[in-house]
């Protein structure tokens, strides 16, 4: 067992975990933050995407111990003071989700995408979201949501 400590959604957390514990397991099982999902076992789907020190990371590709001391944000930490993040609001407004299972990862990736590309074209959005699989929406409305959010985020 190894002790890991990190800040998750602004709260200091600490736990003893087996050294092979993935960050996503730590988030879901130790912290019971179940908004971060697991959709595959080959780091392909992006359902597990969170922010580690401000960058989007597939939390199934990272060990919990690697995030020791990091500042982690999950989907549960995105809304501030009960106010949806513009990306969350845009997904709702533009029907960017259906079953919602890919959505937390998709939103976390999209927030990072817009941070790096403040005014993304449709092509940029599609290329950037290549690591997040959605089986429901055909991506049409996801692209629309990200575009709309980028405008609202002052891009």
């Amino acid at each position: 067992m190894t002790t890991v400590s990190m800040t998750v959604n602004g709260k200091q957390v600490s736990a003893d975990v087996a050294p092979n514990t993935l960050l996503v397991q730590f988030i879901r099982e130790n912290l019971r933050l179940t908004g971060t999902h697991v959709g595959c076992d080959t780091s392909q789907c992006g359902a597990c995407t969170v922010h580690v020190d401000g960058d989007s990371v597939k939390s199934c590709t990272m060990l919990a111990v690697q995030a020791d001391g990091a500042d982690v944000t999950t989907i549960e930490g995105l809304a501030q003071n009960g106010e949806l993040h513009p990306m969350q609001a845009a997904f709702k407004e533009n029907h960017g989700l259906q079953c919602g299972f890919c959505t937390p990862g998709m939103i976390m990736s999209a927030v990072d995408l817009v941070k790096r590309n403040p005014n993304p074209s449709e092509e940029t959005i599609r290329t950037e979201l290549e690591g997040n699989i959605c089986r429901c929406t055909g991506y049409h409305n996801i692209v629309k949501s990200v575009k709309a959010a980028s405008e609202n985020m002052g891009g």
């Binding site: 879901r28 179940t34 908004g35 697991v38 999950t74 809304a79 997904f91 989700l97 299972f101 937390p104």
Partner: peptide
């Protein structure tokens, strides 16, 4: 949508 975009859905796992 509100519960899904905030990570508050309850999927089986």
């Amino acid at each position: 949508d509100q519960r899904f975009i905030t990570g508050n859905g309850h999927y089986l796992d």
